[in-house]
Design a binder for these strands. Structure first.
Length: 295
DNA sequence: AAAAGCCCCTGGACGC
DNA sequence: TGCGTCCAGGGGCTTT
């Protein structure tokens, strides 16, 4: 599933394809994705212009003319394909499989834009969703209001994270995965950031918390590693595991830089470590880590 | 309030 | 080849 870097790359691709264009038609091929599609979905969207495409955590936010916003989430397997006018081939944004072509049976929503561009949303598992909201109520939207700090924003600091971790009874891994604490991290990048920071995933979240009003050395180490892993992933075009491809349709390359994720029983890549990557399950999800490097 | 399960859904990988 | 089992990048919702 797409995490922050992948969603950000989708955002950029959508903005390039949609910005300034008008939605002139919309095909809704089923009543629901994860949630029922909004009533009057097509009627609300048709005729509006796309002013910009934003991202908050793993959500995509289309700002439309006349104060309307479209909230979208890719879930695990959502992807967009951009086709049309002046392009040599289709541009695939987000979750694709290694097969270039998505199964058209899972093409759920098709946007027709002015200028002849078509944007098709495909999502086999249908964990993704689309919702409408008034632009000026977005901050208060129930799905967005509780989200934590953007890890690539200036307000993401060791002080803030350490304060947030104070008194928590949960594992550090689960704490970082919780979107209310840090918005946009997923299973891959949490594992990768913890490895880079040398922190064991099972250690208690409170062990990075503020002590005597100051963030611990662990928090000071962790925050820049989170930022670095996300920034590098965006620069590399996101991770490709089963089904993610970057904007030009080629595979993202970041999985080649994974130090731990999906590397169970393989040697630790840190020089002179000699350890073996382990897989454990935390709150029902796989965690990969190096027991030697991460304490 | 916070933490831990459960569930939504399809498809790919693997073992037999 | 076919079938059963397990697993998957998310997150909302319910229960403890």
């Amino acid at each position: 599933m797409p995490e922050l870097p992948e969603v950000e790359i989708v955002r950029r691709g959508l903005e390039a394809a949609l910005r300034g264009r008008r939605i002139v038609g919309l095909e809704q091929r089923r009543a629901d994705l994860r949630f029922p599609l909004p009533e009057k979905f097509a009627a609300t969207l048709i005729g509006r212009r796309v002013l910009s495409v934003w991202r908050r955590a793993k959500y995509l936010l289309l700002h439309l003319s006349d104060g309307q916003a479209l909230i979208m989430h890719l879930g695990m397997t959502g992807r967009f394909t951009v086709a049309g006018s002046g392009r040599r081939g289709d541009v695939v944004l987000g979750d694709t499989d290694f097969a270039t072509k998505a199964d058209p049976a899972h093409d759920h929503v098709v946007f027709h834009l002015s200028g002849g561009t078509t944007v098709t949303y495909n999502d086999p598992r249908r964990f993704g969703f689309m919702l409408l909201a008034e632009e000026d109520t977005l901050d208060r939207h129930p799905l967005l209001a509780g989200l934590g700090v953007e890890p690539l924003g200036e307000t993401f600091t060791a002080e803030r994270l350490a304060k947030r971790a104070k008194g928590r009874k949960t594992d550090l891994k689960a704490f970082l995965l919780d979107q209310r604490n840090v918005a946009g991290l997923g299973n891959i990048y949490v594992c990768e950031a913890l490895f880079r920071a040398g922190l064991a995933p099972r250690r208690g979240a409170a062990t990075i918390a503020t002590r005597e009003g100051r963030p611990t050395a662990r928090a000071l180490r962790l925050v820049p590693e989170i930022q670095r892993v996300l920034t590098e992933a965006i620069a590399a075009g996101g991770s490709t595991l089963r089904d993610y491809r970057k904007a030009d349709g080629s595979s993202g390359a970041y999985q080649e830089a994974h130090q731990v994720y999906d590397r169970e029983d393989e040697p630790c890549r840190r020089r002179a470590c000699g350890g073996t990557i382990r897989r454990i399950v935390q709150s029902g999800r796989s965690t990969f880590y190096c027991p030697r490097c991460q304490r």
